[in-house]
């Protein structure tokens, strides 16, 4: 019944890099944000797994903090998307390049 923790960590890594690929490849800002959520959750999975290994709920608390930060990040990210949508013609992460050198 018991599964090796290594499997959980590997699963977390797979999810994380799927999220990374999504961030880099996709241009739709909403999907980019969702990919970031994927990365958060991958990290959470690793934290929960480690907490289980050492039977220490500090990892759970940390996940709680990450969830909070993720919520704040999603809210602000979406607010930025809305603001960009109001000003720019296209909603596209390539469109927001005002800081180019």
């Amino acid at each position: 019944m018991s599964v090796d923790v290594t499997n959980y960590i590997a699963l977390s890594a797979v999810m994380f890099f799927i999220g990374v690929a999504g961030v880099i490849v996709r241009r739709n800002p909403l999907i980019v944000l969702m990919a970031i959520e994927l990365m958060f959750n991958a990290a959470n999975l690793a934290l929960v797994a480690f907490a289980r290994v050492w039977v220490n709920n500090a990892g759970h608390i940390f996940v709680f903090l990450v969830v909070t930060v993720a919520a704040a990040e999603a809210a602000i990210g979406l607010a930025i998307v809305v603001a960009v949508f109001r000003r720019a013609e296209n909603v596209d992460v390539d469109e927001v390049a005002g800081l180019h050198g």
Binding site: I24, V25, V91
Partner: peptide, 20 residues
């Protein structure tokens, strides 16, 4: 789909996936 402008980094997928 959302209104999207031109893709300014059309060749980013290959290096991104490779690095990933």
């Amino acid at each position: 789909p959302f209104r999207a402008g031109p893709n300014r980094l059309p060749r980013i997928a290959a290096p991104a996936l490779l690095t990933t």
